[in-house]
Write a protein that binds this DNA or RNA. Structure first.
Lengths: 215, 215
DNA sequence: AAGTGTATTTATGTATACAATTATACTGAT
DNA sequence: ATCAGTATAATTGTATACATAAATACACTT
């Protein structure tokens, strides 16, 4: 499912790339870009770049002004708000997923979890982050609700920059994988209440770990 | 604040117009559009139209395919999910607003409420809807959190099509204005707990009224 | 030296021409 | 009649030229 063999448009590639560069902190807050700078850097015309920029603007990751493109990114305060919201609704998405997930989707979720568990003892932070992130994304999708997906995905993505320290902390990485395992088993057993409960606890733990650090 | 004397770009005007036409139900679900049809209908070039369409696609209101542009809109199931989420987080936004709102912002909120109260006995559904909607939007903004604003605004906007019947029902319109008044007084008194409580109750009532109708 | 008005530069906004992909219609064979 | 293959048409994707508006630099006045 969603194998995406189709060719992805330049605009989408650029959007993904710029979004990642902003969320990862490569572009600093208040940094000023211009379309022409991106044209020369990326080697494509303004059209797909503009499309990507407008999508980023809609996510409030940049602000397009007459002076140029101002990088906004995600602040520490944003982060607190994000976790407050996720604590309240991400559990519901897990419950919905537990109640309606198919065997095929379950297999996909299991594989993602096992990949995360594979990389944790190997301390491969990059891969851990990828599969940790994908685990949440799959649950959003398997909730079957595009409203929940559209609401949670942007919130989840925006934590990215701050998740780095989290996955590089070994004890937290181990604990996080265990929590994912618990959520997965609850979903696999189609136990909605338990899936919800474990998910909320997981978000609370992640929030405690990430927010504690200050900035 | 946000008087917007500046000229608005064509792309933004078209986005607002198309978004409204989809959310109001003017364009039916599964209806097929093309860029060229919009070019001839709206009398502008493809560029601003494409920008608007890409923003609509990001909000999942349309799907852009090779066959053309498929209108998605908002389903009854979406609506149930939307109210479930709003019940859980919109109260927090009200509490935040109560705790930090300025006198100037308060005056703005009061004026919006009084306009709603002005039009309710006159049974002017269009105006009631505008100020009802603006009341919620202002609270999102005055929460001071762009995360809450960005999360709640799209959810709120998507109820639009279904709110029509609501504001045209006189008893519900009267009741809704009363509930807004209660929320406003709590915010004006900087009573966060009460603002949160009243807001949650208001969302629950709105959900009961709108979801009850089926579709 | 400070401020104002103006010219210039630089940025995004828009229109249009061209490319590439995909859906569709049509023709022919079985 | 049905299906496969192919040609055609219609669609979105991309590049570029032009328009417009704002920020900046600079000269001039006081």
């Amino acid at each position: 499912m969603e194998m995406d063999h189709r060719t992805v448009s330049l605009a989408e590639q650029i959007f993904d790339r710029l979004e990642n560069e902003i969320l990862s902190g490569y572009y600093q807050r208040d940094e000023l870009l211009t379309e022409m700078k991106l044209v020369t850097d990326l080697g494509v015309s303004r059209t797909p770049i503009r499309e990507a920029l407008h999508r980023l603007e809609q996510e409030h990751l940049i602000d397009i002004t007459q002076k140029g493109i101002v990088v906004l990114g995600v602040t520490q305060k944003d982060l607190a708000d994000i976790f407050e919201i996720r604590e309240r609704i991400e559990g519901i998405a897990s419950r919905m997923a537990a109640e309606r997930i198919t065997d095929e989707q379950l297999a996909q979720l299991r594989e993602t979890l096992e990949l995360q568990e594979f990389y944790v003892p190997r301390k491969d932070a990059d891969h851990i982050k990828i599969y940790d992130s994908q685990f949440h994304k799959l649950i959003y999708r398997f909730s079957g609700s595009s409203v929940y997906y559209d609401t949670l995905m942007p919130l989840h993505k925006k934590v990215q920059k701050y998740r780095k320290a989290s996955v590089e902390n070994e004890s937290r990485a181990v604990q996080s994988a265990k929590e994912h395992r618990g959520i997965f088993e609850a979903i696999a057993a189609h136990d909605g209440a338990k899936a919800e409960q474990y998910t909320v606890a997981h978000i609370v733990n992640a929030a405690n770990h990430i927010l504690k650090r200050g900035n």
